[in-house]
Design a protein around this nucleic acid. Structure first.
Length: 555
RNA sequence: GGGUCUGUGGCUUAGCCAGGAUAGAGCGCCGGGCUUCUAACCCGGAUGUCGGGGGUUCGAAUCCCUCCAGGCCCGCCA
């Protein structure tokens, strides 16, 4: 409802002023929408802004398209106050199943996220990628796009060679019950330590990488076994986080099917390409300081960038819009990738960067074994959530409390991550991770559960739409914005906007809940409030699910 | 050194790209509210040179320049 109303007001303002940019924005406390176009017109017409605003308001009031929207000139501002039609229609729409879904689109989107190297478990830095990526994926589906989510599996990097070497030479056994990815990390850390003590091992690692590049069956098989094992563990963590990938793309496949050779042939023909013992591209015309962007080593093997180039040309063939979610450490190589794709005449991806998550003692390192794993985080938060549920709902059977605790824990973790703007670097903090109070996922889940509880107690009722109190009105107006938020998240690739929206909706509902009794009221007030509660419940459910959080009916 | 992101009350943070009306929250602190629809809640209070300085503008947290501080990057690693 907000989107349509905004466009309507904008259209009428343009018609009345002849200006393309009518300075229309949210009016804060003053209005539902406000225009600052009078400032711009003041200059052109050499009149006082307040006089122009007053005249413009007068003309706007004569326009039938605005219906019951009240126009008011307040100083230089032209304010718009939405009427009853907006409230009724806004709430009515918010009742429909799948509220917030936008009309189907035809552009196929491929979104890549997480793609952590399979040399250990996901840690609290990786899952910032997961949570941003999976929330975006859900928003894209809600916005009507056909979408495939991919995990690019690095199965032939140096790290994997190190893991494979470790398995073959260190004889490290798997502890009983040890998760696959944690086991692989233990081998990886030990192998790195061995290399530090005996640098000659590096030559063996190099040989392994050359064999894999040549397609040596046995070495490839060993790499694959290690990667597959680690990936099993990673998939379990992703599943626990409610994050889903449609496809795992193996990096080495691009060597195997010849795409890497083909892309290297094309690179070689570029005027910016140079061949000595290596093959490199001169990207200085794009303003890169470092001249050589190497795509083939002197020993003839490809580098990560080469395979990434092949991966992206393959992706581009299968979709209309590519989105990669990457850590800020990839900014330079991401820009180099895009530049090279442009030289090749290929469509580049759009890249969503997020800044680093560090520990209070410094940055994380899988190699040094210095990280907080996502599994450990989930475990601790789930344990805390179980205690909380048990304290509040001792009467519930243990299995039910455990199920609620799992949902609450994932809500807390995902929300904590998604609510922060991606460009902000953060320091992982156990105290914050274990906080289920305001501005948290559980807080929003709780608002939803309360709404469910009211509706359950109410039984059947006739939907009516009479809204008078400030809390009813504020809530109804906020409900009407939801589809606009989904649209904005997809346009700007910023899922934290949805996190803020959901929290505000919960805030408004909690205040309403406190001041305006629902079940104890009577007549049309009661049914209208029940209708509002139903709309809030439905919208909270849609918003939570788009954030990958379970909309619990009881907690 | 170069590039890039960040700097908003004690702490965490929204707003910045598309400049507008008293900078919006949470935690913590102080004070209040559960025989009343689930208190994972609500209400009130104190707390801000929007990192510093310059500029553009009728108007700057928001745009430009500069300086300061911190993160990340600058491999024939991935």
């Amino acid at each position: 409802m907000f989107r349509e109303t905004y466009r309507n007001v904008e259209r009428v303002l343009r018609a009345c002023t002849g200006e393309e940019d009518v300075g229309l924005a949210g009016g804060g406390d003053h209005a539902d929408l406000a225009s600052t176009v009078a400032f711009k017109l003041a200059k052109k017409r050499r009149l006082a802004p307040r006089q122009i605003a007053a005249e413009l308001a007068e003309r706007l009031r004569a326009r039938p398209e605005l219906g019951d929207i009240v126009v008011e000139a307040k100083g230089p501002y032209v304010n718009f106050h939405f009427g009853e039609t907006y409230l009724r229609e806004g709430v009515r729409r918010a009742l429909s199943p799948g509220y917030g879904d936008l009309p189907p689109r035809s552009e196929r989107v491929v979104l890549e996220h997480t793609s952590a190297n399979p040399n250990g478990p996901l840690h609290v830095g990786h899952i910032r990628n997961t949570v941003i990526g999976d929330s975006l994926a859900r928003a894209f589906r809600k916005a009507g796009y056909p979408l495939e989510v991919q995990y690019y599996l690095n199965d032939m990097g140096r790290q994997i060679a190190i893991v494979s070497w470790g398995f073959d030479h260190l004889g490290i056994g798997r502890h009983t019950g040890e998760k696959e990815d944690h086991y692989v990390a233990r081998v990886y850390v030990a192998a790195n330590r061995a290399i530090e003590e005996n640098p000659e091992i590096t030559e063996q690692i190099d040989r392994l990488m050359q064999r894999v590049e040549r397609g040596d069956r046995e070495t490839v098989q060993r790499f694959r076994t290690a990667v597959a094992m680690c990936t099993e563990g990673i998939k379990k963590t992703l599943a626990a986080l409610n994050a889903h990938h449609d496809r795992f793309v193996w990096e080495s496949d691009f060597i195997r099917i010849g795409d890497v050779d083909r892309v290297l042939d094309r690179v070689r023909r570029l005027p910016q390409a140079h061949e000595d013992d290596t093959l490199w591209v001169d990207l200085s015309e794009f303003g890169f300081e470092k001249k050589k962007y190497i795509l083939r080593r002197s020993d003839g093997t490809s580098v990560y960038s080469t395979r990434d180039l092949a991966y992206h040309t393959w992706k581009a063939r299968n979709c209309d819009w590519m989105i990669d979610v990457l850590g800020a450490d990839h900014k330079l190589i991401g820009a180099q990738l895009i530049a090279t794709l442009q030289l090749l005449g290929e469509r580049p991806p759009e890249i969503v960067y997020f800044e680093f998550v560090s520990l209070p003692e410094g940055s994380m390192s899988t190699r040094a074994g210095k990280f907080v794993s996502a599994d450990e985080l989930i475990g601790e938060v789930t344990a805390k959530a179980f205690d909380e549920v048990t304290a509040r709902r001792p009467e519930l059977p243990e299995a039910e409390r455990a199920a609620i605790a799992r949902s609450v824990a994932i809500a807390a973790i995902r929300y904590d991550i998604v609510k922060i703007s991606p460009e902000k670097s953060t320091v992982f903090d156990w105290r914050e991770a274990l906080d289920f109070e305001r501005q948290s996922g559980p807080y929003i889940q709780y608002a939803h559960a309360r709404a469910c509880s009211i509706l359950e107690k109410a039984g059947a009722f006739q939907e009516t739409f009479e809204y008078r109190t400030e809390h009813e009105v504020a809530l109804a107006k906020h409900l009407a914005r939801f589809p606009a938020v989904i649209e904005q998240v997809v346009q700007e690739l910023r899922p934290h906007l949805l996190a803020a929206y959901a929290r505000e909706l919960a805030d408004l509902f909690n205040t309403f809940y406190h001041y305006d009794p629902v079940l104890q009221s009577a007549g049309v007030t009661r049914t209208s409030r029940l209708t509002l509660v139903r709309a809030v419940q439905n919208t909270l459910k849609e918003a939570l699910e788009t954030l990958g959080i379970d909309a619990l009916r009881s907690m």
